[in-house]
């Protein structure tokens, strides 16, 4: 949290405090859109936008917001940006908006954004909060892309809709179905924790 230079913020957001595999939050909307890489990318970009601008706004008004209603204020700020994303998608990418369905709206209840607003933007200047939002969103997007890469490649034989594997490839139907997302994320969390767990002490309290 003391990390201050932009480089440090990005490093923390993408690896050290990566919201998905370190804190295991925000996965509600993470998994549902990972069947295709394009969906994940759009979802990730939407999330980066919402996180960055919500953190910026929360940070700008942090000295005027009464302490006890700050949660409500944050939720409202986040909702406004989510509505912007939703309208934008509906107007320019109607098919994408259909494919993502309710999950765009569910960005509001994504714990990552609330967590970053409450934990970082509340006590830090606007510019840094903005960068922190981008970094956290980026960390999230990268995980989404890794999962969807595996699922799309094995499930459809394509990457971003382009056929990569030839006709000899038999699609793994299981990869398209929900359980695969749980397995892949489980293995990623396992890997990330074993790699980084060596220099950490026992009992890191993760909810």
């Amino acid at each position: 949290m003391a990390g201050d230079s932009p480089k440090k913020i990005f490093k923390a957001g993408i690896w050290e405090d990566n919201p998905i595999f370190k804190q295991v939050i925000g996965i509600c909307s993470a998994l549902a859109v990972t069947n295709l890489m394009l969906n994940s990318l759009i979802m990730g970009l939407g999330l980066i936008f919402v996180t960055a601008f919500s953190e910026l706004t929360v940070s700008l008004i942090r000295s005027f917001t009464p302490k006890h209603i700050r949660m409500m204020v944050q939720v409202l700020i986040i909702s406004v940006y989510v509505i912007i994303v939703d309208i934008f998608l509906k107007a320019y990418y109607p098919e994408m908006s259909k494919a993502l369905g309710p999950y765009v709206g569910l960005i509001i209840t994504n714990c990552i954004i609330m967590g970053r607003c409450e934990g970082y933007a509340q006590n830090n200047p606007p510019l840094k909060s903005f960068l922190d939002g981008i970094a956290s969103g980026l960390g999230y997007t990268i995980i989404l892309l890794i999962i969807s890469f595996i699922r799309e490649l094995l499930g459809f034989g394509t990457i971003f809709g382009y056929q990569v594997l030839g006709s000899w490839w038999t699609n793994w139907t299981i990869m398209v179905m929900p359980p695969a997302a749980f397995f892949i994320l489980g293995v990623i969390v396992w890997w990330a924790r074993s790699v980084s767990g060596e220099d950490e002490k026992e009992g890191g309290a993760i909810s």
Binding site: P179, F183, G186, S194, G197, I206
Partner: peptide, 16 residues
């Protein structure tokens, strides 16, 4: 395995 405790195993059970 150490890294699998907590969320990791929960996700895999959820998958099953």
């Amino acid at each position: 395995p150490k890294g699998l405790e907590g969320p990791g195993i929960t996700l895999i059970i959820t998958g099953l």
